[in-house]
Design a protein around this nucleic acid. Structure first.
Lengths: 136, 136
DNA sequence: TACTATTTGTTCGTATGTATA
DNA sequence: GTATACATACGAACAAATAGT
């Protein structure tokens, strides 16, 4: 599979699909580095802008992380801590805004759980390392 | 408050903060349209690129939606349907990837709940219109 | 129907800043 | 100190969708 210039799907979205598939298939192993933006651009025959936009999409999906000066990395699946919910709890999910994301030290593309306890307190948990369970 | 060119915080992030605050304060009412990109660029004295990046941040947070040919809109808080969890259920939260997001008809910046039932079935729900509850 | 104006989307180009190796 | 690599920012041109005339 490669980039189809005549497709109505934008180049950077096609590229994101290709890279995502490469991650799923193991071509780009979890925890490992992706090729540099320049390399990806050359390998797939697209501009650097398309590469950066594709990576931005994958970051927003929580699939890759990028740090300045380093090649992007495939985000490994994290161990999830089991949190037991209690009777009367209510849970909503949402994305943190940027300041909140910074405070909580979360990567891009990581949702949060808000657990509303019966006593009115609200517990905020990162959804990428949490599994909520309902006791029997 | 306005853009500080000497700040280390990038212009587009400062602008996202300003618009987010404008949404929170009611200057940009929920469900209403934001000014056009060109207008925002002129009003805040930044390039269109900075405006588009700021809007992209807010979209990824689920705060605004954008459709081609139309000005961006402040995403209203949706009514949440209450879903009762059952004993033995487990819940994780994650972002959908792009194809999945299209299939489910979700806006950007909307996480999904995966409810793993005791019988092995998995229920996928949009987190922006769902509230999970634990029965007493 | 047809046309125009507005608006967002995509792509490329260029330059500069900053972190890492 | 140099080279590599990612981040930010501006501008320009054109495509595509929308709304109204």
């Amino acid at each position: 599979m490669s980039i189809d210039r005549r497709s109505h799907t934008p180049v950077y979205r096609q590229l994101a699909n290709l890279i995502r598939e490469g991650i799923r298939s193991g071509q780009y192993p979890a925890g490992g580095f992706l090729p540099s933006e320049a390399t990806l651009a050359q390998e797939y025959g697209v501009g650097r802008d398309a590469v950066r936009k594709a990576l931005a999409l994958l970051r927003a999906e929580g699939r890759v992380t990028t740090e300045r000066g380093e090649r992007s990395r495939v985000r490994p699946e994290l161990e999830r801590v089991e949190i037991q919910l209690s009777a009367g709890d209510a849970v909503i999910g949402r994305m943190p805004d940027e300041p909140e994301r910074g405070r909580l030290g979360l990567d891009e593309g990581v949702p949060i759980f808000e657990i509303h306890h019966r006593d009115g307190t609200i517990e905020v948990l990162p959804a990428d390392r949490t599994k909520l369970t309902v006791p029997a």
